[in-house]
Design a protein around this nucleic acid. Structure first.
Lengths: 229, 229
DNA sequence: CGGCGCCGTCACGGAAATGTAACGTTGCAA
DNA sequence: TTGCAACGTTACATTTCCGTGACGGCGCCG
């Protein structure tokens, strides 16, 4: 249940306060001071939630929200807006742009964390992750099930997360450190070789279904999921 | 696939936002600012779904829901309640009155549309009888009864709500927190492990009827209702 | 008031899952 | 070919997670 939150906020004091609160709530925080930084931070891996200041240098938060909604990768990422009291804003416009919630400054960190958790839970409840298919494998996110053709595959929690990450990031090699970050969560201390073991377990559970070679070793780098050998 | 939705809401801004979102999702929207307007709007032709604000001038949404359920013409029309955060509402009473789902304000239009579609899909699936059948189990919503074949199953209130939620959300894994949200209501604090105990009790009452494996454990995540193992 | 049903919590035990070390194997470079 | 580093594989101790029975509390109705 380790979540990544992108905080788009130009005021350093608020940013630090928010970051402190979120880290205490076991979330990973990424910063961006303006819209451009936000977009480039997202281009790598989309976060689980975006905390967006209403007033930003260059581009308003609303404008950024619209752009995020327009892009495939970020269309489903929940957005929470931060607005200063008195800033007259058109709530309807915001909600039409797909903003999930508002928090009015000044706010207590307790309230902010509570709202974030509520939104994350709701986002997860709605389809969140649909179903993905690749290389003869199908993974049903909502049902939390994995299929090879018609037969279901029994799989452990970590193997499930690992496979899910691989399938949503196919055709690309990841280092062990990156996999630990993405699959285990950034704040755990685990030996890198542990990844090898889980890759091995995943390969072994897929093997009886004739699914070999899906997870490929990239020597000196890490692993890659690919439907083509 | 063109559905008519009646929106009963006195606040103009929310009404407009909802109307905008629903029209974009290819639905027809009818307005009503209070309970009386709602009743007269319905007397013409009942809609496919009713979106009901909790707080209305004159009559509470819950009261209106009960009256709608009492009338033959509207007894089968699905109802979704809108409640503001902090408005103390008794989710249990709502469910007894036949409310199909709750959405807490502020909500995102994406979330609202998703929930509406889900409820419509379910309503269509049960053929308008208000009863759901799955995995050899049948649950009669209006009568609050559960059957395995011809024999009725005695079941407690919480177990009933839990089973009802599971059957209306089959083939999907839910965390304990989500189940507490949906079945117990968001405003109560109970331990997550309590869910385990009720799942256990539910399994035990279903077992004598040969209904094993319907409620499945998803390790590290929660539970899932499914007719297939 | 006393019995009954239902509910939430706790504690115990077992099973699954996890991380790590140790050893075997492969591939690359000198 | 040799040597070394990277990777595969296995076994094992530990931790986490879940099933289960029991207990006390609360409300309700006789």
């Amino acid at each position: 249940m380790h979540k990544r939150v992108l905080v788009v906020e130009d005021e350093a004091s608020i940013r630090d306060m928010v970051a402190f609160a979120l880290r205490k709530a076991d979330m990973e925080v990424i910063h961006a001071a303006d819209a451009r930084a936000a977009l480039s931070a997202i281009s790598d891996t989309p976060p689980d939630l975006i905390l967006l200041d209403w007033m930003l240098p260059g581009m308003t938060g609303l404008e950024l929200a619209r752009r995020l909604r327009a892009e495939e990768r970020t269309a489903e990422v929940p957005i929470i807006m931060l607005t200063a009291r008195g800033e007259e804003m058109d709530r309807v416009n915001g909600l039409e742009a797909g903003v999930d919630d508002y928090v009015v400054k000044p706010f207590s960190t307790r309230e902010l964390v509570a709202r974030i958790k509520a939104v994350l839970r709701r986002a997860q409840a709605d389809g969140g992750t649909g179903s993905i298919e690749s290389g003869g494998l199908r993974i049903d996110g909502p049902a939390h099930r994995v299929y090879a053709g018609d037969s279901q595959i029994e799989i452990g929690p970590t193997e499930y997360r690992l496979l899910h990450f691989f399938m949503t990031h196919a055709e690309r090699a990841y280092s062990r450190a990156q996999l630990l970050d993405q699959v285990w969560g950034g704040s755990v201390y685990v030996e890198e070789r542990t990844v090898d073991v889980h890759v091995r377990r995943l390969r072994k559970t897929l093997e009886p279904f004739g699914l070999d070679g899906l997870i490929q070793t990239v020597r000196g780098t890490g692993y890659r999921f690919s439907a083509s050998p």
